[in-house]
Design a protein around this nucleic acid. Structure first.
Length: 305
RNA sequence: GGUGCCAUAGCUCAGUCGGUAGAGCAAUGGACUGAAAAUCCAUGUGUCCUUGGUUCGAUUCCGAGUGGCACCA
């Protein structure tokens, strides 16, 4: 018998196309609560069909947060999500025993579950200057810069990944302190219980679902949704599967059939990367998306079996 | 029915002047604490269609068979 009802955050995660949305809604209804979406692309209100945002009737069944709350022109990151999602949770837990967080953005989920280290905001000119230096002087030059200012991080970073190097240099130029000095490697404490539920299925089955869903998106008007966004194709928010491939079609680099094929392939690759990302997380309890009853039992038992 | 061409990785094909083979794509594995649907790294054994012959040795040359494509009847 449980005496004190702990507030519990139920995280429902899984690769793209596996069926998180409908299952999350059913579970939210069972638990009489709301959903915090954790999807870095569904936040952009201009992206709906291509990011498989819940249908209007679904949104009317259960209240969702963090869907369509940004414009493609906005800058956003995992740390901002951590802060805002925590605030939202605090509100939710005033009136609910449970909260649901669902989505496929692993870094964002981790930012909320484990926390993310505090870093300074990066000035856009600093970012721009470093990008320019990457283009003119090359990656090796930036690697050497990093070696001089942050030898510790130089030892552990993926030196071939420009984004990692740029991030570390940005932080140094903003603060004069090495990036590694900001990394605590510690999980933050959360004032609620967290259950992480992963959805998984046979790879072939998942890929089949993904391919089918892309066809459905095209039928639903994905091309028409993407076309007016083409002038903004340089924005990070539009470096998104389902849109970037259509931009190539709009630019006459290939035909529509090829664009659709590329969307399917890149969605499969994305799903694979998501699965790899969560594989090392031992706190996740895995279920097939059809196992709703088992999942609810697991949530209500409140145990990590 | 006749003639010609083709048959090699899941797909499209390259190649071996005879010493058992390699590209692109697909696929697979991995990394990842502020751009994360992003970014980065790694992985190529396959009856070289089947079967006889020549040869020390055949996926490679020759014959036959099977299948495909093209043209002629």
């Amino acid at each position: 018998m449980r005496i004190i009802p702990y507030k519990t955050l139920v995280v429902i995660l899984g690769p793209t196309g596996i069926g998180k949305t409908s299952l999350s809604i059913e579970i939210a209804q069972e638990l009489n609560t709301e959903i915090i979406s954790c999807d870095s692309r569904q936040m952009y209100r201009e992206l709906r069909i291509g990011t498989a945002v819940p249908e209007p009737f679904q949104l009317s069944q259960v209240k969702h947060h963090f869907i369509g709350n940004l414009s493609i022109h906005d800058y956003y990151n995992a740390s901002e999500f951590e802060v805002q999602a925590l605030q939202q949770l605090e509100q939710l837990f005033k009136h609910h025993q449970y909260a649901i967080m669902t989505g496929g953005s692993g870094l964002y989920i981790d930012a909320l579950v484990k926390g993310i280290d505090e870093l300074p905001a990066i000035d856009s000119t600093v970012r721009h200057d470093l990008k320019t230096r990457l283009q003119t002087d090359g990656l090796e030059a930036l690697q050497q810069d990093l070696f001089k200012i942050d030898p510790d991080y130089y030892q552990t970073v993926d030196l071939k990944n420009p984004k990692r190097i740029l991030k570390a240099l940005e932080v140094f130029y903003m603060t004069g302190k090495p990036y590694s000095s900001f990394r605590t490697n510690e999980s933050k404490h959360r004032p609620f219980k967290i259950l992480q539920i992963g959805l998984a299925m046979d790879r072939q089955e998942l890929y089949h679902r993904i391919n089918q869903r892309v066809d459905q998106m095209v039928e639903a008007g994905l091309v028409e949704e993407a076309r007016p966004l083409f002038p903004y194709n340089h924005l990070n928010s539009l470096n998104t599967v389902g849109y970037k491939e259509l931009f190539g079609y709009f630019a006459h680099e290939y035909d529509l059939d090829e664009a659709i094929g590329l969307i399917k392939r890149n969605s499969r690759h994305y799903a694979k990367r998501q699965i790899t990302y969560w594989n090392r997380n031992k706190d996740i309890e895995w279920f097939h998306p059809s196992e709703k009853i088992k999942i609810l039992d697991y949530i209500k038992s409140g145990l990590r079996t």
